[in-house]
Simulated scan of single mutants.
Amino acid sequence: MTSPLPLAAVILAGGASRRMGRDKAAVPIDGPDGPTTLLQRMVAIVSPRCAPVFVIAAPGQALPDVPDVNARVLRDEVRGVGPLLATGRGLRAAAEAGLEHAFVCAVDMPKLTIDIIDTLAGPARRLGVDVVLPWDGRDHYLAGIYRTGLHGTVDDLIAAGARSMRALVDAVDTQRIVMTEQAALTNVNTEADLTALIPPKFSQQSH
């Protein structure tokens, strides 16, 4: 059996969260081990498989404590320019840490599993492509494995005015892995999304 592909993790936590109405990273949820936040939950999910973990936050953004010793918080230089710049920052940090691949994800995927990461890691190792994404009828740009050396490509795209993850994926060698729609790939964009995915343990006290 081949050894698993070494991976860093890049968690993008600096989005404006307009539909949620508040900073997603600090949104409280019920975790398997008790109350937590979306950011803490995402670090707990990826850290058993990926190290180091880089949390990319906006300038001045307040974050909940991240106790994992392998997690580092990095700040975007500019607020509100989209996920491409933040991804490049994380990939550069992962490359400097000596990793050739990183799992890049959003902070709002509390049902993500290591199985999803490993399903993508196999093709990333075998095929030698730049990006491996899950596809369930749409691309999940922020749940994929990226070569860390792509940070240079990101810099070039940003300099040319690009801001979207699609611009990066379209510019490099990308492999899509067909998957079924599932909770592990679901983003929580509103309070209703969160409640549907993780129902509160105590919806109402009995009278």
Score class of each variant (00 low, 15 high):
K111S: 12
V43I: 13
S206Y: 13
R163I: 07
S203C: 03
A86P: 01
G122A: 11
G88K: 09
K201S: 00
D23K: 06
D130W: 06
G82W: 01
A94E: 00
T195H: 14
T87R: 12
S206T: 11
C105N: 03
V178N: 12
R163V: 11
R19I: 00
Q182G: 10
L5E: 13
G128M: 12
A192L: 10
L150N: 06
A26D: 07
P6G: 09
P199E: 07
F54C: 13
A26T: 07
A9F: 11
A16I: 02
A97V: 02
V188Y: 01
A86S: 15
M1K: 09
K201T: 05
R19S: 11
N187Q: 14
A160D: 14
L197S: 07
E181D: 09
K111Y: 10
Q182T: 03
V81P: 01
G149I: 05
A184H: 06
D136K: 00
A13R: 02
A71G: 05
H140A: 01
Q61M: 15
P134A: 09
L197D: 08
Y146H: 14
A25P: 00
A86E: 04
M42G: 01
R72V: 12
L185Q: 04
D130K: 10
L84P: 02
T87D: 07
F202T: 14
F202R: 12
Q61H: 09
D173N: 13
A57N: 12
T180N: 14
R89P: 07
R92N: 01
A160P: 03
G149W: 02
T186V: 13
V66G: 04
D173A: 12
N187M: 14
R138N: 05
A196S: 14
A71Y: 10
S164A: 13
I29S: 03
G144W: 01
P110E: 04
P52L: 00
H140D: 00
I177W: 10
L99Q: 11
H151R: 02
Q205E: 03
P110V: 05
A159S: 08
G14P: 02
R41E: 08
A160C: 03
V27Y: 15
D118T: 04
I158P: 01
T186A: 07
A121V: 07
